[in-house]
Design a protein around this nucleic acid. Structure first.
Length: 603
DNA sequence: GAGCACTGC
């Protein structure tokens, strides 16, 4: 029936024209349409341009089309637009292809990991930032692109940051001089180091070489020292640092600083006792401090990977620690100084009322304060003398009564320092095997005692061999390396141990050891850390008894797989989930027996 | 099955 199909086709044609008209009108009505000419001119005039506009103003869909119409795709060049998420890259590409009245994959296409719709004809290419970074590895100058649009740049991922840095060209366009980049943590440093090294292999052979060197606090000091060495001639040193390089150490010879403007900060919820590390923008003071690390010995430059308007929005200075940590120790110290009215105390930076009340409550539960908020005698006075977290001070006093002070002194020393175990990603299995040798089925506290004693034994052996102090220290360093123990943390723990040992002797606590009786020791841990008990739930998760929070055992714990019915823990941290760390298996009945003031009524 | 800013007593 030819007439019918002719009619249908005419109808189709009409619908199509109407749709085209709609699209044209819609495009014209977008706020960005009025500045098309100016935008294209500005892009042509500037190497880097930051465009700010409301959501829905049409930046993502229109700008690439303006640039295309403005001639940015001559000679086969491509306009690349990055998106922080895969879905966005696909949907925006589809939308723009429709607006261009073209099939997806021709003029307009997208490319994401495992899915590439582009062809040789593609001139407007939407992609994820991670994918563009991969392309940059193969072609550092991204030579097939005439323009790169980094969309949603405020949704800053490490990828966008590195990308923005690369686009500023982190290396090829600037003169010689070392670079210092501020990152938030070990993981970010490690992944960026890998990326840079992959990319560095593909640099044009005539350009100078790149040498990356990480520095962060849990890195063993031998490796930290690398950051202070100078690079061979013709090589540029790139130091990837946490804010350890902001104030704690000064690396000589830095000419360029790269500051993405973020920092990892501790956050604390006084009600739940939950601690977390969150990534937040730096303060103005921090940003200035960071830029000041460039060119200390000559002219330098700081590349801030954020906009000037963002800088103005930064807070002037970092929120002081006192407003974001557990206050129990501060309150205990004030009480010992006979300052009774803590709430009314004239703090320079006043912590929240809730935080103060919570710590007063905790100190009462620990027996450091009486019910009328007075320092108790002798426990409160003893606790205030010890430079430890009040819960650890309490643990020492309890262990003196229960006759396992020696073991508890080791535990609180080891818990008071940074992580004892060092597990570099590339030697994870070896590190795990080494740790197995110390591990106790009863829990992490006894594991820590085992590590401490094994280290002491190592020192004892070399002492018996009449070794000099320096030889002994070397033997310990080697032992640490072989056993994947962080030497610096262990040394710190030994220092804390000897300092606290001095205090407990002066205080007249009862020196004692539980010997092989680990039940006694676990009971003592229960008596000390009863506020941090958790019970396994039918679904395998745990419930922290004091706050009823749902928590999981952190995978770094020796009890991660065993999942005992009841545990006491020392740390409550929130990362991807609520985690408890440093655990020991206990009998739930011990709680009512050893902390009746807290548990008896509940049973 | 996580991924760990810094300092001080």
């Amino acid at each position: 029936m030819p007439s019918f199909s002719a009619g249908a086709s005419a109808q189709k044609q009409q619908n199509y024209q109407r749709r085209r008209q709609q699209v044209r009108e819609q495009r014209k009505s977008l706020p960005i349409a009025s500045v098309e000419k100016r935008l294209v001119d500005e892009v042509r005039k500037n190497d880097t341009l930051i465009i700010v506009g409301e959501t829905g103003s049409g930046k993502t869909t229109q700008l690439p089309q303006f640039l295309y119409d403005g001639g940015f795709c001559q000679y086969g060049k491509v306009i690349g637009i990055t998106q922080p998420r895969r879905v966005a890259a696909v949907t925006v590409a589809k939308r723009v292809a429709e607006e261009c009245n073209d099939q997806l994959g021709k003029k307009v296409g997208y490319s994401i990991r495992f899915d590439d719709s582009t062809s040789n004809a593609t001139r407007i290419k939407y992609m994820t930032d991670g994918l563009l970074l991969r392309e940059a590895l193969l072609d550092p100058l991204l030579s097939k692109y005439s323009v790169i649009v980094v969309d949603e740049a405020h949704e800053r991922t490490v990828h966008t940051d590195v990308l923005l840095g690369l686009l500023k060209k982190i290396h090829l366009e600037e003169g010689p001089g070392d670079i210092l980049a501020f990152l938030t943590g070990q993981e970010e440093i490690e992944s960026l180091e890998r990326l840079i090294n992959e990319r560095a292999r593909l640099l044009p052979p005539e350009s100078s070489k790149i040498w990356t060197t990480p520095i962060y606090s849990s890195l063993p000091s031998e490796q930290q020292m690398n950051a202070f060495k100078s690079a061979p001639a013709g090589t540029r040193k790139v130091v990837l640092a946490t804010n350890i390089a902001e104030t704690s150490v000064t690396i000589p010879g830095i000419k360029y600083v790269i500051d993405p403007g973020m920092v990892k900060a501790r956050a604390y919820n006084p009600v739940t006792g939950m601690e977390s590390l969150i990534i937040i923008p730096v303060s103005k003071a921090q940003a200035l401090q960071r830029s000041g690390r460039a060119g200390r010995e000559g002219p330098g430059k700081c590349f801030r990977l954020f906009q000037e308007s963002e800088f103005d929005k930064l807070v002037d200075s970092t929120v002081p620690e006192i407003k974001r940590c557990n206050l129990s120790n501060v309150v205990l110290q004030l009480k010992a100084l006979e300052i009774d009215d803590i709430i009314g105390f004239d703090f320079m930076e006043k912590p929240s009322r809730t935080a103060i009340l919570k710590s007063l409550e905790q100190l009462i539960l620990l027996g450091a304060l009486t019910d009328d908020y007075k320092l108790s005698d002798p426990v409160g006075h003893q606790m205030a003398r010890l430079p430890l977290d009040p819960m650890y001070s309490k643990a020492l006093i309890v262990s003196s009564e229960l006759k396992c002070l020696e073991e508890m002194l080791i535990v609180v020393s080891m818990l008071s320092v940074e992580s004892i175990f060092f597990s570099p990603r590339e030697k994870l299995e070896e590190a795990r095997a080494a740790r197995k040798g110390f591990e106790s089925l009863e829990g992490d506290h006894i594991t820590l005692v085992n590590v401490y004693r094994a280290a002491a034994e190592c020192l004892e052996k070399s002492k018996n061999a009449n070794a000099k102090e320096r030889t002994m220290e070397k033997a310990l360093t080697r032992w640490c390396r072989e056993n994947f123990i962080n030497h610096r943390s262990l040394k710190h723990a030994r220092d804390v141990h000897s300092q606290i040992q001095g205090h407990v002797q002066q205080m007249g606590l009862n020196p004692s050891s539980c010997g092989e009786d680990m039940v006694l020791f676990r009971r003592c841990l229960t008596a000390a850390f009863f506020l941090n008990a958790a019970m396994r739930q039918p679904d395998g998760s745990y419930r922290a008894l004091a706050t009823s929070q749902s928590v999981q055992i952190h995978p770094s714990s020796g009890l991660f797989r065993t999942k005992p019915d009841c545990v006491i823990f020392n740390e409550l941290v929130r990362t991807t989930q609520n985690y408890v760390k440093n655990l020991t298996r206990i009998d739930p009945l011990w709680l009512a027996e050893l902390a009746p003031q807290y548990y008896a009524t509940e049973d």
